[in-house]
Amino acid sequence: MMRILKSREFLVLVLLGVMILGVATVNRAVLYPITLINILNSSIFLILLAIGQMFVILTRGIDVSVGAIAGIAAVIFGFALNGGVPLPLAMLAAMLTGVLAGAVNAVGVVLVGIPPIIMTLSTLGIFRGLMRVLTGGSWIEQVPQSIKAMSVTRVLSVPILVWATAAVIIVAAILLARIKAARSFYAVGDNREGAYLLGLNVAGTEFAAYALSGLFAGMAAIVFVAQIGFVPMQTGQGQELKAIAAVVLGGVSLMGGTGNIWSAVIGALFLTTVDSMMIFLHVPGSWNNAVAGAVLLAVVVADYLIRRTVRNRQLVLRAAELRRADADAALGREVAP
């Protein structure tokens, strides 16, 4: 319990609650259930991107191409739907596109050894370009409107798309916590050399992380298309940086090894909520980015200060431990076995 209370996810969750309540004192409308549901609904795209991103960051990598992967997966999804492919198959195609795109990143990073930021920055350009080439630069519009059913049909007044995303999150969280192989994401990011020396498949784990990042970007693409009903060229644009910000905000360290699905979920939720709150405060939307950036900066700097304090205290404790043992020895209290 203490661990949960001390965790960064919890800190951000509390901040989120405080922010919503704070805004509620100015504008009660924030607390209407429909408002909260709308916030949830508009955050699931970023949540999915952030979860994918989290796998990569867990292993100490970074993937700035997730937005572009979502874009190209959305295009394939749109093509498939317009080509008369049944919805489940079209969804599969979108996710497969994501996995393939992620695998391209993985080949460059894991097999060739290109620094992740360079590799994924390149594929950001490549995927975005390909997306335009495939579509000739125009929006895909005549997507069967049946797809929108997913986002407008509501169960308990919550869109089924939100329910579906929640299910994906919970399944992913359970798998990540329970499957042994999933723990190697943490092991590789926590202590890469240690993981290798213990016989873990480090390259395979990193490969899987990039592929998963692509998979979740593919899912995010499905959500996006279902919510707006067409595929604009801007799909996912700029979202890669938001996804990274969300993950880091939620407590996943770029040094790897810490964080979980909830970090990504809460971080993404927070960033989306900030945008919504601005509306309720009648602050012009133009300030959204400034607030998001300030929050991210404040949280990572605070996190650094806390870590530094904890580390110093540990060093002092160990020094004291050694000294005590020394003093014991000097007093002859230590009895030879």
């Binding site: 943490y186 092991a187 926590d190 050399e193 240690g194 993981a195 020396l197 090894g257 810490t258």
Partner: peptide, 11 residues
């Protein structure tokens, strides 16, 4: 058994 044990601090 390495000099600096390979511990995963978060596991």
């Amino acid at each position: 058994v390495p000099q600096e044990p390979h511990i995963f601090p978060n596991l």
